[in-house]
Write a protein that binds this DNA or RNA. Structure first.
Lengths: 217, 217
DNA sequence: TAGATTGTTAATCGATTAACAATC
DNA sequence: TAGATTGTTAATCGATTAACAATC
């Protein structure tokens, strides 16, 4: 189990989940070797980028054969923590929060949502899937007791930062921000933004002004 | 109604929805002027970036006062198409597709989901909110008849590209891709990727290796 | 006027791509 | 061996930041 020497750059980190997903598919179909050219083709990158990326985490290939699929898969899984279970809580029991809790996909990928919280008293105790909505007062204690390291912010935009502050204070180390707000956190906490409406709006801009085949996100 | 001279770069486009959201908040609270410094502070940018961005779409401020909120809001709304209604369909009536259809937020932001499709016969006719799941056979006709310009791909990864092909063939101009797959489309079609699991995995990497306060997305 | 904030140019930074010797 | 594919260095590209004259 090799620990990472240097930190990976944000652009490399962004590609890791896609490498992982694609390589997992190869592995499941029994493919044993893959070249940087094939990976690039399938993920919409250049082979240069792929080789540079793998160099970043010191995964070596073999000239004329490429990269060993099983080793690569293990390496990627370790780097993105796909080989462990993450206990996650959701804050906000609105439309979005409820959908997240009931979305089976997450637990299959190792993200187990074990609690949901809301500021609205009327929702306390309401069942969502197998969880009951809890009061915000219980959040701090729950995070500590249940060893929660990640929280999903699914509240109205205006409440985003204050919820983030609560989560950080409770000891959470990673925040998935689904609000439009810009979330400020200490240096030892990570934030990843995931805003579906923003993606739709980028898209509508591109449709209106026909940006030539432009990706975003 | 000024049409955009040159195309905006991807990084500028990515910031537009956040400018819009924040400026809308200012407008709603009756604020009339805003400086690049304030915008930068609130959105986690530098004032240089803000001024550069606004120059891109030729929105002029006034020295010592800043930018007029109402004019800026109108400009941004026009650029991201927030001043119109978009008719959208969802492909995939699994967990995710159902959640999207029932998520009230979208229609409030101008994205009206008017159809949901699935390849599984067992789901035909099933009600989701006020929509009924339709057969894929009907997709082409529906897109043309209902003037659909955007589609959301919420199917298993392995079906992503073939669904994209169907949508493009039907005439859809923008795709929101929620699968892990890399989607290839012609130049006159836009794709925006939105992958929650990928965001969670970027986050878990950062938590494991404590990337110093690194955003992604 | 004096001071603040703009629009714009130039400098920096980081990420991507190209090129190629090494090597299997 | 000959040919393909790697790891790595150098070149390019694009995005961000710094700096500052113009101006309200």
């Amino acid at each position: 189990v090799s620990s990472l020497k240097k930190n990976l750059s944000p652009s490399v980190v962004k590609r890791l989940p896609r490498y992982f997903s694609y390589v997992k598919g190869l592995h499941d179909s029994g493919v044993e070797w893959v070249s940087s050219a094939t990976l690039a083709e399938e993920l919409g990158l250049t082979s240069s980028t792929v080789r540079q990326d793998f160099t970043c985490f010191s995964f070596m290939g073999i000239a004329k054969r490429g990269y060993q699929v099983s080793g690569l898969l293990d390496m990627l899984a370790e780097i993105i923590g796909a080989d462990m279970e993450w206990r996650v809580i959701v804050v906000g029991a609105g439309n979005l929060g409820r959908a997240l809790v009931q979305h089976g996909e997450f637990v299959r990928r190792g993200f187990n949502i074990v609690g949901i919280f809301d500021a609205d008293e009327a929702k306390y105790g309401v069942k969502i899937g197998r969880l009951e909505v809890q009061s915000m007062d219980r959040l701090d204690d729950f995070v500590k007791r249940e060893d929660i390291r990640m929280g999903i912010i699914a509240v109205p935009d205006s409440a985003g930062q204050s919820v983030a502050d609560l989560l950080v204070k409770a000891g959470v180390k990673g925040l998935l921000n689904m609000t439009m707000a810009h979330i400020v956190v200490p240096d030892n906490v990570a934030v990843s933004d995931s805003r579906i409406v923003a993606s739709l709006q980028q898209l509508s801009h591109c449709v209106l002004f026909s940006c030539p085949h432009r990706r975003s996100k």
